[in-house]
Simulated scan of single mutants.
Amino acid sequence: MAPDTHPVRNPGTALDLSVVRGIRVNRSAVERRVGSLPGRRTVKKEWQAAWLLRAISCMDLTTLSGDDTPGNVRRLCAKAAHPLKPELVDALGIRDLALTTGAVCVYHQYVSTAVDALRGSGIPVAAVSTGFPAGLSPFEQRLAEIHASVAAGATEIDIVITRAYVLTGNWVALYDEVRAFRDACGDAHMKTILGVGELATLTNVARASMVAMMAGSDFIKTSTGKEPTNATLPVGLVMTRMIRDFGERTGHEVGFKPAGGIRTAKQAVDWLILMKEELGDRWLRPHLFRFGASGLLTDVERQLEHYVTGRYAAAHRQPMV
């Protein structure tokens, strides 16, 4: 398929415990592979600018703070629709790209605010749901959260799994939970947050990824951003290898979203290179790859301004932090 062709949604498959239990991860091999990425692949000048523009198009611009307000959310939506200053857009010669971020991600309380602010822009609204970030509220309440966010206009739902199912190897319960969430999402795309920093081993991350895809996840996502350890390249390699394996087994394409701790342009390029090398150019588009990002856009915009002017702007000139 062409890189820009949207994938058919992953319908899921039956749970195959023989596949899940057969997964093993060699941590040393994983660390050697990701250690080679920054050293072997560097991009400079106009190529770096192009990669950073692609990173912007794949951002889920996010605000998930206790001090969120409707005003903050509307401001975030304005930035999502116009992520770069007009003078920078003109200097780069990209006005015809109509560049936006991939989505805006908020708590359920602000879904309707974001939907109103983004009306007509084509930018989807994503809602975190199912007892985010711990995922420990009653099951029926978590299902109700999904239904409420979809009814409010969210077209993407970021759900969280019960980590205890992974830590105890209860793959049937994990599959049933994610499948129920997928059914509740209806036409809304579902991103399944694994909470990798709380899963203890890379083998657990790999097995949880496979179960989540078998249950019908449209994306698998590393973290809530609230764990002590969030998106790291070793975890990303393991999850992308599972996406590739699932695709080879079933023919279904699943997206990937690293989230938490990705704050610099250099980190963004490293993740994009990982996706290109492991999954190919189709996973360099927002329909199959997203960054969960709040502060990333600030550094990307600073780097693009440096490319144009040769100077780094003060952070307050790109105040989305």
Rank of each mutant, 00 (worst) to 15 (best):
P3T: 15
H6N: 07
P7G: 01
R9D: 14
R9S: 11
N10D: 07
P11Q: 02
D16I: 03
V19C: 00
G22A: 06
I23Q: 15
N26L: 14
E31Q: 15
R32Y: 12
P38W: 09
R40D: 14
V43A: 15
V43P: 04
K44M: 00
K45T: 12
K45A: 12
A49R: 10
A50R: 07
L52Q: 10
L52P: 02
L53R: 08
A55P: 09
I56P: 01
C58M: 10
C58T: 11
T62G: 13
L64I: 07
G66W: 08
D67S: 09
T69L: 12
P70I: 08
R74N: 10
L76H: 01
L76K: 04
C77K: 06
A78N: 12
A80I: 07
A80D: 04
A81D: 05
P83R: 10
P83H: 06
L84I: 05
P86F: 12
V89I: 15
D90H: 03
D90C: 07
G93K: 04
D96N: 13
L97F: 04
A98Y: 06
A98E: 09
A98P: 01
T100N: 15
T101V: 13
V104N: 02
C105P: 13
V106E: 05
Y107D: 05
V111D: 14
V115H: 03
V115A: 06
D116N: 15
A117K: 07
L118H: 11
S121G: 01
G122Q: 10
I123G: 10
P124R: 14
V125N: 06
F132D: 13
I146T: 13
I146D: 15
A148L: 08
A148S: 09
S149N: 10
A151M: 10
A151Q: 12
E156I: 08
E156V: 02
V160E: 14
A164D: 11
Y165A: 00
G169P: 07
W171C: 08
W171S: 09
A173L: 15
Y175N: 03
E177Q: 03
R179N: 15
F181D: 06
R182Q: 07
C185A: 11
G186P: 12
D187S: 05
D187Y: 14
M190Q: 13
T192R: 02
T192S: 10
L194Q: 12
E198P: 08
L199D: 03
T201V: 02
T201G: 03
L202N: 11
L202W: 15
V211T: 06
A212F: 02
M214T: 14
A215P: 02
A215H: 06
D218Q: 05
F219M: 02
F219Y: 14
K226Y: 05
K226E: 04
T229M: 09
T229N: 04
A231H: 10
V235F: 07
M239R: 07
M239G: 05
R241W: 02
F246V: 01
G247H: 12
G247K: 01
E248N: 12
R249K: 12
G251E: 08
E253M: 06
G255R: 05
K257G: 02
K257A: 05
A259E: 06
R263N: 06
K276Y: 12
E277H: 08
E277P: 00
L279K: 08
G280C: 00
D281I: 08
L284W: 11
P286W: 14
F291S: 01
S294H: 12
G295L: 05
T298G: 13
E301P: 01
T309R: 06
R311A: 11
Y312C: 04
A313L: 11
A313E: 07
R317G: 08
P319L: 01
